[in-house]
């Protein structure tokens, strides 16, 4: 790519502010290299002759589509298959058996929130298939949601690189669930059809997704600002049916607000929704309203003043 430049500090600060406003994620103070790495590929795919040109275009034209693409690339998580095995164990040994019994064979809906390139959602589908003998007639809908991004497109296609299928994925699962396509590995149709992926702004209203019996939200919470944490967790709490589960990373906890969940004893990061509790916490003055185009445009104006 021609003219790739080191990111100017003023651009980094502006991107940091934009990411915080649009996605509630704090990039931190010294991740210039990460930002350059993630955005250079996007700039090339979008036909810009350099990263700087793309960023200048963003802050002069105020294109919402470009802003969402950039922020999606910046907040994309480094996923791998069966990351945090303990929380997968909670799913197969506690959550699914309990829900299967409670639902009496009825469908169980599971949400992979912030699914990125889909490894978590497909991992759930693999383990569900293995439970067929233990939990007869287990019927599960698995839905993955995230910002529109190249990662989400790959999730929909179920296509992974040589390196991705070798991080966290037991070789037996590779043999059973994938076919090789030149340098890539592609999920077999039976598994791909078990998962549905949807584009969604994660800080927007989530009601259109419907209700779920379990929501997986692992490894992302610490990256959100405190106000965005409240907004996301409140939204997720209202998606979980009573006696349903919230599965955080096994080293993550709900801090000051319980959002209507009780911790499941002895299962780190696992929470169960109480009966008939509608989560309406006191308004938090630090919580911003959902970001809309006006908010984005305010950010653009701020950037214009930075760049002079």
């Amino acid at each position: 790519m021609r003219g790739a430049l080191t990111l100017k500090p003023s651009y980094y600060e502006a991107l940091k502010r934009l990411t915080l406003e649009l996605a509630g994620v704090n990039l931190g103070s010294d991740h210039t290299f990460l930002v350059e790495t993630r955005l250079s590929g996007l700039a090339e795919r979008e036909g810009y002759d350099s990263l700087s040109t793309m960023i200048e275009e963003l802050f002069t034209s105020g294109q919402t589509r470009l802003a969402v693409q950039i922020v999606s690339a910046l907040v994309e998580r480094d996923m791998h298959f069966f990351r945090d095995p303990k929380s997968f164990e909670h799913l197969t040994e506690t959550v699914l058996p309990a829900l299967h019994e409670a639902r009496g064979g009825g469908r169980i809906r599971i949400l992979s929130f912030g699914c990125a390139s889909g490894q978590e959602a497909y991992g759930v589908a693999m383990r569900v298939m293995e439970l067929a003998d233990r939990l007869p007639n287990l019927k599960i809908d698995i839905i993955g949601v995230d910002y529109p991004s190249q990662a989400l497109e790959r999730a929909k296609e179920g296509r992974y690189t040589h390196f991705e299928v070798q991080r966290g994925l037991p070789v037996q699962d590779l043999v059973q669930h994938f076919t090789r396509d030149n340098e890539d590995w592609v999920i077999k149709p039976a598994l791909r059809h078990a998962v549905e992926f949807k584009e969604m702004h994660l800080l927007s209203s989530l009601e259109s997704l419907g209700q779920f019996h379990a929501v997986m939200f692992r490894g992302a919470l610490p990256h959100y600002s405190s106000s965005a944490q409240v907004r996301v967790l409140r939204g997720l709490a209202n998606l979980v049916q009573e006696f349903g589960y919230l599965i955080l990373g096994s080293d993550e906890t709900l801090n000051n607000i319980n959002y209507g969940f009780d911790k499941v004893y002895g299962k780190s990061g696992l929470y169960r929704k109480r009966e008939d509790e509608i989560v309406e916490p006191e308004p938090d003055p630090n919580v911003k309203q959902p970001t809309d185009r006006k908010t984005f445009e305010r950010t653009v104006r701020k950037k214009r003043s930075i760049s002079g």
Partner: peptide, 29 residues
């Protein structure tokens, strides 16, 4: 990298299978 080769290796008693090229993250995983 052929699936048939991987199955052959597992049948012979291999516990895991790494496809070259590898990096430290793959070996550790």
């Amino acid at each position: 990298r052929d699936i048939d080769k991987i199955i052959e290796a597992l049948s012979a008693g291999a516990n895991e299978y790494i496809m070259k090229p590898f990096d430290s993250a793959i070996i550790e995983s």
